[in-house]
Computed example of a mutant assay.
Amino acid sequence: MKKAAMFLFVVVVLAGIGIYITYLRLQQHEQMRGQYTQQLIQEQKQLIDEQRKKLGHVPDQLPEQKTQVNVAPSIVSRPAPAQKPMPSPLGYFKCDGRQYCSQMHSLAEARWFVHNCPNTKMDGNADGEPCEKDSRRKTDPNWQ
């Protein structure tokens, strides 16, 4: 009986040590992950700063454009594009056939597509502001 109790005690102690070591490794992993995330954030901030320096002064938000919508019995017409197309930041955007909000990576990209590309389907109410019903606007802080 004493041997069985002693064996059980040793098993419990070894299991406890194993759990503790696993817990420490998990904490270490989480700490390393947090440091890596902070490193990525810093790198992204540096890239953004470099891009802004190259571009000069760029407003954080596009100015609001008031558009007039002509509604016929079943036809919604989109206002004509502005005199000059919106410049593509660093030349990243180009009309490549994408039409839907789900295909866009950012709100700025969607705005550029609506103002510069034909046959987009991102501005349902034709007010010039795309992806108004896209859930990422509310849930994703990077969707700006």
Rank of each mutant, 00 (worst) to 15 (best):
H57P: 13
M86E: 13
V71C: 09
D49H: 00
P63V: 00
Q103A: 06
R111P: 00
T37V: 15
K121S: 02
E30N: 09
P118Y: 03
T67Q: 13
V76N: 04
A72F: 08
Y100A: 09
Q61K: 14
Q51N: 10
Q31W: 10
G16D: 02
L107Y: 15
Y23G: 02
L26E: 15
R52Q: 09
E109R: 02
F113I: 11
I21E: 09
Q28F: 13
P63Q: 00
P79N: 05
H105I: 05
T120D: 01
D96N: 15
L90Y: 00
A108K: 12
T22E: 07
P89D: 00
K84M: 12
Q103D: 04
T22Q: 11
Q83P: 06
Y92S: 14
Q65S: 12
E50S: 06
M122V: 05
Q28G: 09
P79V: 07
K66F: 05
L40G: 05
F113P: 04
L24A: 07
Q83D: 14
P59V: 00
Q44S: 09
G34L: 07
G34Y: 09
Q44C: 02
L62Y: 11
I41E: 04
V76I: 15
R25W: 05
H57D: 11
Q68R: 07
K54Y: 02
P63E: 00
S77Y: 15
Q83G: 12
N70L: 13
Y100L: 14
Q39P: 01
I19F: 04
R98S: 01
P85D: 15
P85G: 12
L8M: 14
E50P: 00
N116S: 06
S74K: 03
M32N: 08
K53I: 00
L47E: 08
V10E: 05
K66L: 03
Q27F: 15
A80G: 14
Q38H: 07
E109S: 01
M122A: 12
P81C: 14
A80N: 11
Y100T: 11
V114S: 06
V10R: 06
V114Y: 04
N119M: 03
F9C: 11
M122C: 10
K45F: 00
V69S: 01
Q46I: 03
G91R: 10
R111G: 05
V114L: 13
V12T: 14
L26Y: 09
D96F: 07
V71G: 02
R33W: 08
E30D: 07
P73Q: 02
Q38V: 08
P118G: 01
Q31G: 02
H29T: 10
P85A: 13
L55F: 08
V71M: 02
V114N: 06
Y92E: 15
Y92N: 13
Y92P: 01
E64Q: 08
Q39N: 04
R111Q: 06
D49S: 14
A72E: 04
G16K: 07
Q65G: 05
T120G: 11
L14R: 09
Q46E: 08
